[in-house]
Design a binder for these strands. Structure first.
Length: 872
DNA sequence: ATCGTGCATGGTTAG
DNA sequence: TAACCATGCACGATC
């Protein structure tokens, strides 16, 4: 007896027969114990139960004649005990169907006879009488399977397929399917009971679908091609490498599984799984994990039909624990239960999170439930999903482009680990086709060499008509949240972003500039190309450099800033520096400089990762890259050497703007790479004109505000003088505060004027603050509030820098802005407490709203960074 | 506040 | 149109 046969599926917690007899019941037919949950039928005339294995192992002629089951205590039960070998075979060999001969093994088990222990006793005799009998009993052989050539001789197999073709023509009933694989299994056997009995019975009475679900590998519906790809046996002749969605072994009438749940397994996999061992793996169904399935809630929704077909019948909502083995051999106990739902049931497996995590599954992956026969142990395999659908070099596709799930990773890892040989050797599959299928994690794939990506369009053609929409719905919008929070996926996403850095504009095609809402976008007619990753640096002198590392000697070479390198590049390709055109040439950069450069580069990358993981990251790569450079610039100060990513060179002139952060959408940050060097002081582009215009407005406001401040001081002084006698300390504080404000304002104005005197625009200034200060009445203060509220709620730009988040650069927008201010003033009734204008110091810290830390903000205020010319 | 549980809701799809 | 099922949500338990 094989180890698997001994390790029967234990549904209710029994580790084995030896562990707990309570999980087993005694068959009144064979008077031996069988697992309680697997393969039972109740007598039609009494409440005794008969194990299906006993029934099938004897003869289903008897069963069909009786139209049901009779136990030994019933009037006609004696006929059940008539061995078919003596009754049928003796009378007429052609009328008999001798199924696998089971021999009692061990104390209480029926187990399949060891394949090599003695000559096969299985014989298949298919004749018209059988067809007639099956027709009468409503058996549908449309899904009859022939799992293994090890069981059938090739001749028998072909005969069977030939006859099954006729069966399909003659039989139209939908019923339980005969699965020859079950005849090998023995523990959970499909019993060819009439459909009427199936559908008329309660889930927990009579032969549960779970009990009958231990059927084996169904062949393709296209049985009209016997000997070709119709079955696993036939596949020995011509082995198709097609991942076929196989219908469930048993048709269950209206409860038949939807094609989307059909397990997709190649014939060869089936053959391998079943043909070389005493044990067989019976793929039951598969399901694409939804977000909720893979989420932390730990509930895996089971398709109703699948649950009722392959899981134990449950009548109570709390269900029963089910032990399922994963691909690594770990055994998990899930709670199989259901919820009432619209007069129906919704079946779930609870507590799957550890298992899901163990298999590193996420939404979009597929779990495949299978059963190992004999024993009926449920196993859960998986198939990872991939969104990569790159075509193969030979023109074929590894996956149909219309599909999302891609089986380029172990299909059902580790099943072979579960198939222990009877001899108990350490290697579960000695000399088996699986022995070279272990992946790096020790899992075992169903694929053999060459099976992984050799899928062709035939695959698609044989896929069931699964709606792509349906299949991908699970990983759609609602799954995005999960995917976004998945660290692995995040890592992939960042890797993708890194890959974006390697994209270069097509070298031979110039961009066409398209202005959308004031932003210039480059459009290329050709797709981008991949290039070698280089490092851009911007020196304090304004010079920008590009550095690349030789693939051969790993030395860094300086390149012209606008050079695009191919993916492979070496010193010999350095046509721009003849002195360093060889690897033997010394480094141009000292090790210290190199370390600094690389360190900064790493810091920049790290910061980018952090920003992205924090959700701060901008949606535009250029923005993020430029912001990193800006942040680095702020840290490094004047003498910085800032590495910039590809395409970031344009940010060079603005890298001393410390307020830019990831996600900043200000005018500076949104500049496309092509903006490099094109914004000169005399530039009249929209961006520059807008900045100049805003600066002019700002200065006017400052000037006006200064005048107001002076008037205010005078008024305060007068007021203080009038109430000097009764002057309270509070008033003194107010006055002091006002004086301080005034001083600060003047300082700010002076600074601004100082900047303007140089003909430079200070992008470090806080326009909002200035706007607040510049307003001379409450209405204008309301404007600020309204503007802020509009900005916060009405724009999509993250307020990530102190520069206005409104990035529109057209003058028309300014007009609209002014109009909006007026409208807001008209429409909004501002409560008195809403009119409070944040004081200068508070404003600088509290109204940031862009993720700046207070410390950083304070540092910015305390130590204004150098304000170099802003060359935009 | 977070987590777990049970149920309800609504979109999707098969019949 | 009914059934399915993914997921939201309320409520109680627990930290």
């Amino acid at each position: 007896m094989s180890s698997l046969a001994a390790g029967h599926l234990s549904i209710r917690g029994a580790e084995s027969l030896e562990d707990s007899r309570s999980a087993y019941d005694k068959c009144v037919f064979c008077e031996t114990f069988h697992l309680e949950e697997s393969g039972w039928r109740e007598c039609n005339y009494c409440d005794k139960r008969i194990h299906c294995g006993c029934i099938v192992s004897r003869s289903f002629f008897e069963l069909m004649d009786y139209g049901g089951i009779r136990c030994t205590g019933c009037p006609k039960s004696a006929q059940l005990h008539t061995p078919p070998s003596t009754r049928d075979r003796g009378e007429d060999e052609d009328k008999s169907v001798h199924l696998y001969k089971f021999t009692a093994s061990g104390e209480n088990h029926f187990s399949p006879q060891p394949r090599n222990s003695e000559p096969r006793s299985l014989s298949i005799k298919v004749n018209q009488e059988l067809v007639h009998l099956m027709g009468e009993t409503g058996i549908n052989l449309s899904n009859v399977v022939c799992p293994s050539m090890d069981i059938l001789s090739e001749e028998d197999h072909i005969r069977l397929l030939e006859n099954l073709k006729d069966f399909n023509k003659s039989l139209t009933h939908s019923s339980i399917n005969i699965s020859l694989g079950d005849l090998v299994g023995g523990a959970n056997l499909a019993v060819p009971f009439p459909t009427s009995q199936q559908e008329g019975s309660e889930p927990n009475t009579g032969p549960s679908s779970f009990q009958q679900g231990a059927s084996s590998h169904p062949i393709l519906p296209s049985l009209s091609k016997p000997g070709s790809a119709a079955g696993a046996g036939a596949s020995k002749l011509t082995v198709p490498q097609v991942r076929v969605a196989r219908p469930p072994a048993e048709g269950r009438g209206k409860n038949q599984l939807l094609p989307r749940y059909w397990p997709r397994i190649t014939d060869q996999e089936l053959e391998q799984l079943s043909g070389d061992l005493n044990s067989t793996i019976v793929p039951l169904f598969e399901k694409v994990l939804s977000a909720s399935d893979a989420g932390r809630i730990g509930r895996l929704v089971l398709p109703k039909a699948c649950a009722e077909a392959y899981f134990p019948p449950i009548s109570q909502s709390e269900g029963v624990p089910v032990r399922i083995q994963d691909v690594k051999g770990n055994e998990w106990t899930f709670q199989f239960r259901f919820w009432p739902n619209n007069n129906s049931r919704m079946y779930v497996l609870e507590g799957v999170t550890p298992c899901i995590q163990s298999m590193q599954l996420c939404a979009g992956d597929t779990v495949i439930f299978s059963r190992i026969n004999p024993g009926g142990k449920l196993v859960m395999g998986f198939r990872k999903a991939s969104h990569s659908m790159q075509p193969q070099a030979n023109g074929t596709s590894s996956v149909t482009p219309s599909r999302v799930v891609m089986e380029n990773i172990p299909v059902v890892g580790g099943y072979a680990d579960l198939l222990h040989p009877p001899n108990g050797t350490k290697d579960p599959l000695p000399n088996s086709p699986f022995e070279n299928l272990k992946d790096t994690r020790g899992n075992v794939s169903w694929h053999r060499n060459g099976d992984i990506v050799n899928r062709t369009s035939e695959d698609a053609t044989q896929l069931p008509p699964i709606s792509e929409k349906k299949r991908t719905r699970n990983i759609g919008l609602k799954s995005r949240r999960l995917l976004m929070h998945n660290e692995d996926v995040m890592e992939l996403r960042l890797t993708w972003e890194e890959a974006q850095d390697l994209l270069r504009p097509p070298p031979s095609v110039g961009p066409s500039i398209v202005t959308i809402e004031g932003h210039d976008f480059e459009e290329y007619d050709e797709p981008p190309v991949f290039g070698k990753r280089t490092v851009y640096i911007s020196r304090s002198s304004g010079d920008q450099e590009q550095w690349a590392q030789c693939d051969d000697c790993s030395k860094w070479r300086r390149l012209p800033i606008d050079v695009l390198l191919p993916p492979k590049w070496a010193c010999t390709d350095n046509i721009w520096d003849s002195e360093r055109r060889f690897c033997s040439a010394p480094d141009e950069m000292t090790p210290k400089e190199l370390d600094g450069l690389l360190r900064i580069s790493r810091d920049t990358k790290k910061r980018r990762l952090v920003d992205n993981q924090n959700g701060i990251g901008g949606s535009v790569d250029n923005e993020t890259a430029g912001l990193d450079a800006l942040a680095s610039a702020a840290e490094l100060g004047e003498s910085m050497v800032v590495p910039l990513g590809p395409g970031e060179a344009s940010m060079g002139p603005t890298t001393k703007h410390p307020r830019h952060r990831a996600g900043c959408t200000c005018i500076v940050c949104i500049q496309p790479p092509s903006g490099k060097g094109k914004h000169r002081p005399t530039c009249t582009c929209n961006v520059c004109m807008t900045v100049k215009r805003r600066f002019k407005t700002l200065m006017l406001r400052k000037k006006k505000q200064r005048q107001e401040s002076e008037h205010e001081q005078q008024a305060d002084a007068a007021s203080t003088s009038m109430h000097r006698d009764s002057g309270s300390q509070q008033q003194m504080n107010v006055a002091s505060s006002l004086v301080e404000k005034s001083e600060e304002r003047q300082a700010g104005v002076a600074a601004a004027e100082n900047g303007s005197s140089n003909g430079q625009i200070d992008l470090n200034c806080d326009p909002d603050r200035e706007e607040v200060e510049g307003f001379d009445n409450e209405a204008q203060k309301r404007h600020v509030n309204n503007v802020n509220s509009v900005t916060a709620s009405g724009t999509c730009f993250p307020a990530s820098c102190d520069y206005p988040t409104r990035t529109t650069t057209s003058s028309s927008f300014q007009q609209e802005e002014q109009q909006q201010l007026l409208d807001n003033e008209k429409q909004h009734f501002v409560q008195p407490n809403e009119e409070a204008v944040v004081s200068i110091g508070q404003k600088g810290k509290s109204s940031d709203g862009d993720g700046h830390s207070d410390d950083q903000e304070a540092a910015d205020d305390e130590e204004p960074p150098p304000r170099p010319p802003v060359d935009i």
